[in-house]
Design a protein around this nucleic acid. Structure first.
Lengths: 434, 434
DNA sequence: ATGTTGGCTAGAAGCCGACAA
DNA sequence: TTGTCGGCTTCTAGCCAACAT
């Protein structure tokens, strides 16, 4: 049975695309994922992109992949376009599809307020019964039941990322009383191929619509590399694409999977500049860092900086990518990564190095007469435009992806710095010296 | 339920791999697919590889993909290794996996003799009943039933590519009498996610084992490009990988999907040389070409050569890839491709150009002292070794793939030709002149 | 010769409160 | 508060021959 797709579909340039629900998209992506506004400048890290491919193909980058000496570890780009993507897995012969939604300009990552997220138990996914709704969640997110009825029950209609409708019987019964989704639930579970450990997300939005997203548990070997291209060619492909775009100042496209990638590798330029040039970090310094919890909220973990050095001095010398070695306070933090990037952490004691926002002497001032970006003065540090354009998306297929398209920067666009920043090791910002 | 894997598993270098049944692999790949022997020399066409990626991602090669001027349209390589691949799709949470089998050296493509292939009907795949076995097929392939029983019935045990066991109740009943697979059939259908239009393949081999393969109907958008890498980066990746391997004479890996790719793009060198240099073709010439039928046998279609020119003069000038424009005799041949490669066709009247096997003058003779290949004399045309190494496989996941690994050729290894071949347009073999 | 359908039946799916944790 | 289980009911999966092509 193919579920009907109705409602707020939208024609895009490709004609047959259907749009994704942006609110639900953000909810599925998680509270820590934010989309840079279209038109803004960002920093792209091929190194991080490479990590995503390695994670997706379960294969590390091989030794005989060529180096791209002209490809700097960080490319300053301008976001051109950004679309949300999601695979759709129907229960019948229809194959996976891509759905696109042009992201609204400058949409902040507003997490919905009226929502809940539950990790499915064995009972939730078994054929024996329905879905047990946490009491507080049901009372907050679902429409109120008429408790004078016996038992109180109603029909819920929820819409997924593709605007498909799912109907559930919501009933309040049992001893002790509890909220359950019965009829319709198993259809949803089998259609989405959910298993214990996956999560579902119910959102009650401002338009009084019920939205329903899923987040699959991260399972190994998400993608089958052998079906399309060798993982080596994929690695080479992303590097060559970036290098070519940088050399020719042409547009290119990348995909970012928020929930599959180890780290975000497209960072707003302002955030990057602030972290790298306006923050003094040193070994021994204490810091906080945000993480997402099971229940889709955020919490802070504390740690100490134990070192600052290149993650891969051979392949990616002078990179800011994960250049900070850290130790975590909590013993349960064993699975947290031992290396982070400067813009991911929040140093507990910051020493503003200079009063001026851009104190660094630039040996070769950048061309002026170009649009400045937020908080940055022309002449101090401006950037030739256009640099890069992005285009992104996220899915409910467990793989949630952002698609970035951009114009590359030419090498000379990398700011050239001679001043040294106390607290930072020299090799950390030599990358900026082309 | 995870099906038990027993029997002739085999440890490979990676430890946990299980081997595929090579006989079944060839049967699934089809009668026209043959594997070049390991160690032999082959010609690799990046252009054809590019077509496979385009078909897999449903996206044509974009305009702003860079050219690789140093990458010739055909690379002479030596097959290093070849493994068979298959995705396995289990019915539970386990994800797809890769299974590998080192291909036996020089294994010819021996199609099994005792087999049948049936395209599944709506009834075959519905939950309402079992599988209707064509009478001749059952009598030829299945063990004989005891027809004195009422009704005659037996249990069949078949093994798939991964050596998983499938049990079926085979019964001969109904009015009129017919062969049916009942109990166990639906489990197989749902586990493999078969739908009407897909095909199953039963083989009775020399060891009196029943083998069971599947071939999914070619469905559009087999692969989700957005999950991993943009299709642009994939295209760039395969080109850059080949170019890099050619420039550094290093090893590289490619995947070939016999049933997903429009054409074979790794051709035995002898076959290529014979077709390109020992066969005179011209406009108006009649030819035959082999195609696979519904029932997995081969038949010949006839046609006439209508032109000889580059398929893509801009991106791939002087390429032999699909350089022959053809018209087909049968009006039902509308879906057959209008362009083929020389080695795919069998000209009806051949004029041997010279009595010597390699009559072409080579401006720069190739280094000698290297292994010659079949039918070729050292000194006439020899090839520096090692050139390329391949490694391949095929799956039952609908996507059937060969994985080739090889060492690239350095540009000077391309034979340099000055002689012109009557009947071929000059630009066709200028490619060989680097 | 074989695809589809109606009838029948066995077994799984699915609704319920009991009973922990 | 909520995960799992035994008991019971409902419905579909699945076996059969009839019928059609």
């Amino acid at each position: 049975m193919r579920l009907a797709t109705s409602g707020f579909n939208q024609q895009t340039q490709e004609g047959e695309k259907k749009c994704l629900n942006s609110e639900l998209w953000h909810a599925c992506a998680g509270p820590l994922v934010s989309l840079p506004p279209v038109g803004s400048r960002v920093v792209y890290f091929p190194q991080g992109h490479s990590e995503q491919v390695a994670a997706s193909t379960n294969k590390e980058v091989d030794a005989h992949i060529p180096n791209y000496p002209n490809l700097p570890p960080q490319l300053i780009c301008q976001l051109h376009n950004l679309t949300m993507h999601a695979d759709v897995e129907t229960d019948e012969q229809e194959q996976k599809d891509v759905y696109l939604l042009p992201a609204e300009l400058g949409a902040p990552n507003k997490q919905p307020t009226n929502y809940f997220c539950k990790t499915l138990t064995a009972s939730d996914t078994s054929t024996h019964g329905g879905f047990s709704v946490p009491r507080r969640a049901a009372e907050k997110v679902f429409p109120p039941l008429d408790y004078s009825q016996t038992p109180p029950a109603q029909e819920l209609i929820a819409r997924d990322l593709h605007d498909n409708e799912w109907k559930f019987r919501h009933i309040f019964r049992g001893q002790p009383k509890r909220h359950l989704l019965t009829t319709g639930w198993s259809v949803f579970v089998s259609a989405k191929r959910l298993v214990a450990g996956d999560s579902v997300l119910f959102i009650w939005n401002e338009k009084n619509q019920l939205l329903l997203g899923i987040r699959r548990a991260t399972r190994p070997q998400t993608v089958m590399p052998s079906s399309v291209l060798s993982s080596d060619s994929m690695h080479i492909g992303l590097l060559a694409a970036a290098a070519h775009a940088a050399a020719t100042n042409s547009r290119f496209t990348i995909f970012y999977n928020p929930r599959a990638s180890p780290s975000e590798f497209v960072i707003p330029l302002a955030k990057y500049v602030k972290a790298v040039y306006h923050t003094r970090v040193s070994v021994g310094m204490r810091f906080r860092m945000l993480f997402e919890t099971e229940e889709s909220s955020v919490r802070r973990y504390m740690g100490t900086i134990t070192g600052i050095s290149d993650l891969d001095p051979v392949r990616w010398p002078n990179s800011h990518w994960r250049s900070v070695k850290v130790g975590w306070d909590e013993s349960t933090a064993g699975e947290r990564q031992p290396r982070v990037s400067l813009w991911e952490i929040e140093p507990l004691t910051t020493f503003p190095m200079y009063s001026s926002p851009f104190p660094l002497r630039l040996k070769r001032p950048w061309p002026s007469g170009l649009p400045s970006f937020h908080g940055m003065k022309d002449g101090d540090m401006s950037i030739n435009s256009p640099l890069m354009w992005l285009q992104g998306g996220v899915g409910d297929q467990g793989i949630q992806s952002l698609n970035f398209q951009g114009y590359g920067v030419t090498p000379w666009m990398q700011p050239r710095l001679d001043a040294s920043i106390p607290g930072l090791q020299p090799d950390v910002y030599q990358a900026m010296a082309a």
